[in-house]
Design a protein around this nucleic acid. Structure first.
Lengths: 214, 214
DNA sequence: GGACAACATTGCACACCGTACAGAGATAGG
DNA sequence: CCTATCTCTGTACGGTGTGCAATGTTGTCC
């Protein structure tokens, strides 16, 4: 088990370094094995000494992202709604600042230590809010779904542009009120679907529904 | 504009045929251009006569999936909650029966005619439920996020197994109550996160929150 | 009817991708 | 020193999306 006691040449890398490089190269989607290897000045095959396959790299990246949004935001003396909202927005920010990260979260299983921690804290929050353990578990999943789903949709739509760009671009589209009357009527709001404002609104609405079950 | 009036050989295919083939080959993820071409007995480049690129094929697939869940479920005399729930469950079913479809929905922009129709009908439902147009638009997006997010997470977890398989597999895992007390306590519920029951619960909870804003 | 322009389709090629496999060199314990 | 073990590389295979020039078919106009 001791790392020092095994024969063979010293390792020139570590799994962490690989994830670091992958994170640095992350742009729209998880970088290729070959790209990461190139940045590390190494042949692609070398990475297979540290990772079984590309999926492992993606899983490691997922855990990184979850940790980058500070899970401590889920604790503290603020109201429980506030704590959920703060962490949710932080996570959304991380996922949007790394395009494609959200899609990764949806693809790679979230079985890392950070996701367990986040789940536990969300459960604690809902129990503390007066929900039964069952409803707390249900609510926890509902919140996770909302955050990941929303971030993924927004990330796909943003595509590197700013929130404002998207809104104004959408506003410049005109909808035929004869075909889609309500869409046309509510277009100014629909145009803001991928904004933080909408994100907070739907999260709060969801939390209201959860609170009702207490 | 007349299709008949242009020179050159007759087209041997149509965009629809391509999407048909892609749908037939769909398994876990959208098939490759080369695979679809092979099934149609044609060289890969031929497809580029009908589609600008692979992304277009994916967008067309997305619209197909949305249409496969019957959007007419959104209309009728049933209660508005019921209509939303029915279509949502139908869409969930379609997305789960085609692994990887949900991820596609999240990646490819939903700008097809069916998504417009679904959006319009959801708006109508919420307006009919007494919400202001603004809140209706917000609620519509919240519902879309929930359905797609939930389906994507579940599809990734299901991975070809049945709902029951996943639940029992999860139940057989034991969580250390010293590290994650609430997770351990609520594990029987957490194990059912990827079931239709959880899906309906969170959707109803979300709809309750939406109804509150009326 | 013949010329011409527009078009669908193909063959070939390029630049990627993940990764399997065998071998070369380095390093530890015996 | 010997040998087992480990890292890293060279090479290769089968796959991907798609750009480009050539081929042959088809319609319209003179």
């Amino acid at each position: 088990m001791d790392e020092k006691t095994r024969p063979g040449p010293k390792r020139s890398l570590s799994a962490d370094q690989i994830v670091d490089a992958a994170l640095a190269l992350f742009d729209g989607e998880a970088p290729s094995i070959r790209g990461v290897a190139a940045r590390l000045g190494v042949r692609p095959n070398t990475l297979y000494t540290y990772l079984p396959d590309r999926a492992a790299m993606e899983r490691a990246l997922v855990d990184r992202f979850l940790a980058m949004a500070d899970p401590d935001l889920l604790t503290g003396r603020r109201s429980w709604r506030r704590r959920v909202e703060d962490y949710a927005c932080a996570l959304r920010g991380v996922l949007l600042s790394h395009r494609g990260a959200a899609a990764l979260l949806h693809t790679a299983p979230m079985d890392g230590p950070t996701s367990a921690l986040v789940g536990e804290r969300l459960l604690a929050i809902f129990v503390g809010a007066g929900l039964t353990p069952t409803h707390a578990a249900r609510s926890t999943y509902a919140v996770i779904v909302h955050v990941l789903g929303s971030a993924t949709l927004t990330a796909a739509d943003l595509n590197g542009y700013t929130e404002q760009d998207i809104v104004t671009a959408r506003l410049s589209v005109t909808i035929d009120p004869n075909i889609l009357p309500l869409t046309a009527q509510t277009w100014p709001v629909v145009a803001t679907w991928n904004t933080e404002e909408q994100f907070r609104w739907s999260l709060r609405t969801l939390l209201n529904g959860c609170a009702e079950t207490a």
